[in-house]
Design a protein around this nucleic acid. Sequence first.
DNA 1: TCTATTTCTTAACATAAGTTAACCATAAGG
DNA 2: CCTTATGGTTAACTTATGTTAAGAAATAGA
Lengths: 198, 198
Amino acid sequence: MNTLLRNNIERTIGQNITDAEFESFEKYFFSKSFDKKTVLAEEGKVCKYVYFILQGSGYSYYINEQGEKNVIQLAIEGYWITDQYSFFQQKPGVYFIELIEPTDVLVMNREHFETLCRSNILFERFFRLLIQNAFVALQYRLAKTNSEEAESRYVEFAGLYPHFIQRIPQYLIASYLGIKPQSLSRIRRKMITMSNKQ
Amino acid sequence: MNTLLRNNIERTIGQNITDAEFESFEKYFFSKSFDKKTVLAEEGKVCKYVYFILQGSGYSYYINEQGEKNVIQLAIEGYWITDQYSFFQQKPGVYFIELIEPTDVLVMNREHFETLCRSNILFERFFRLLIQNAFVALQYRLAKTNSEEAESRYVEFAGLYPHFIQRIPQYLIASYLGIKPQSLSRIRRKMITMSNKQ
DNA sequence: TCTATTTCTTAACATAAGTTAACCATAAGG
DNA sequence: CCTTATGGTTAACTTATGTTAAGAAATAGA
């Protein structure tokens, strides 16, 4: 039994579930390990799976017309990651998903997802809440992007996700924040020299 | 029976529903009309309702530390609007919701929302899909914000939502795009003079 | 109709972030 | 251990967007 997944479910729906319920949930997943830099999803191909990270890290990104990578999501253990549009619509996706470190995941395909959702309103509910929380967080992130400067966005990010700062390369964090690595470097230097002076 | 709402449901879940099902959905709403500039939700107060716009328009926004308005969502007839965080968590909200035009809405409170979701997996499913679609659209919007310049974001917005361009004040569209009204004005002028020359 | 808001435009100037390019630091692989 | 690849820093210069301020246009209210 995977406690990380079970905690994730119970925390999300705000109530404990029975062993039987968890069992009937978990059985739709299989676990898998990947090398770092493995590509789990590609633009133009249907994203067949949703991944729950047990250990390791990855990110999703898209490549714009200018050929630049743009990080959409960063994920470490306890996070779900997929190309939502492609996975749910079963249409060619727009994002790539790539691993940063060697990573263990739980994997579920679309068919099992449907079966799961229809089997018990609790699971349908779980996925509604999961995406609802993701939506709220994303809306907040967009609000900040639209109204705050890069420096304060980085400060907030570093405060909220210190474990990301340690493990994720800076150029991916920069992209996640919507700036260039050089700009992030500039911001960090400014912060360091400022804090030395005070 | 409100056909706008029914179409919205059937389009979202990708299947038709029976009259009885729709009836058991619709009965949890009441309809209401508001003057323009009515404030439907306020920062610091629990957002008690979710609104489905039948006629008119509104927007949600938040005010940052510098006291600037930042538009989160624009909505016209056929759109749902609420402060998702506040409505779902029943905690003080972070956003304001304000009407632009005189507006007719269908309104549902949180208790009815819960009852509805638990009454039939179809409705739980509807709201999951609704928020799922909103999430995908929001992720796309953030990706564009982080990687494209204001001009191309405006061009895309104008192409996708021409009815918004006609009805929503420019300073709100500017804020929605994450720029100042002066910048949007500059962009529009550039587009006009460019198209005249060619 | 006249007046007062509200919205939009313009222009000069300021600044945050992008661009280019070089170099340094560290980790990875043979 | 050395070499190469990857990631990070720095600096000079450019550019998109913000800021400030004024006025024009449109809309709403009296």
